[in-house]
Design a protein around this nucleic acid. Structure first.
Lengths: 161, 161
DNA sequence: TTTACTGCAAATATTTTGCAATATC
DNA sequence: GATATTGCAAAATATTTGCAGTAAA
């Protein structure tokens, strides 16, 4: 968990990871930073397979075990988060406490669009939950994207597969 | 996808599934209803393994393939949703459009608590997202539960594993 | 009666584990 | 130099697929 100091300043991730590793007495291996960077630099949510192969494609040699290990560690550290979108594949995405974004997930085609938090949400938390210390939140809005919404209109009923 | 009529009335799930199957020209098999019931009646989010074994424990014979098939179908139908909590296991939970609830996820011990939406959130959507037809949303608040929050206070730094 | 769906078993894919080699501290 | 961490290969799990048999409609 990042401390409150770290959160309010929102240090670069590499530093946040470094700090976490120091506090925990863990080692700063290149693999850990490379995987972190990869997740933070990818525009979409990535699954383990894609992450692994795209690292190799970048010329960075890692083993699958290390990828799995590191994902666990980064979650522990509060730097990434896993997400299920409904297709059974677990994906991972960065956590940012400032510049928060939300997700519009199309329940029909599965497309995910990110939108800036400020564009959508007003005063979200009106009451702090009792006996719970909130750190960040994640909002997923499910519905139909414009394309699928149009399709739905045309072919009502009997949409044989 | 449930139609708008269905949503506003919030019919019993069994009926909503029945309707979906009719509209799609699919069959009303006992397995589909049994799996639906199981998910809707379980207090926590369930993973595939637990779902499968607990159905057998109830004396209901299903195959794993059917469980997987059905989960996909129920997601398609907009009756359940998959969730990733950070431990790599994909879980499933019911979707309710009325009586909405949110999730307090402890980033330390992983405990998930459900809270009534109205207890936490004020006017959430201030603007409808452009070219997107929202159907329901899912809010996860990550942070520390009271137990873990207390622990954290005591043992700052050097929490060797 | 037709054929969508189930269950089974086998094929894939995904994740975990044990251990020797390596690199961080 | 001590040992946490990596990579590899093998083991354990989880998921998908093909197909014959079953049961909804």
């Amino acid at each position: 968990m990042p401390t409150n100091d770290e959160k309010s300043k929102e240090l670069p991730v590499r530093l946040r990871l470094a700090r976490y590793l120091e506090n925990q007495g863990k080692r700063k291996t290149p693999e850990r930073f490379a995987i972190l960077e990869k997740i933070y630099s990818s525009s979409t949510h990535v699954d383990v397979g894609t992450l692994y192969t795209s690292m190799l494609a970048d010329g960075f040699r890692v083993s699958r075990s290390t990828v799995y290990n590191t994902l666990g560690l980064l979650i522990e550290a509060g730097l990434i988060r896993s997400v299920a979108l409904g297709d059974g594949i677990t994906r991972y995405e960065r956590i940012t406490t400032v510049n928060n974004h939300h997700h519009l997930v199309c329940t029909h085609c599965g497309k995910v669009k990110e939108v800036k938090a400020t564009e959508l949400v007003g005063d979200m938390l009106v009451k702090k939950p009792r006996s719970f210390e909130p750190s960040y939140y994640s909002l997923y809005i499910y519905g139909l994207c414009s394309r699928c919404s149009r399709k739905e209109h045309n072919s009502k009923k009997k949409t044989k597969k």
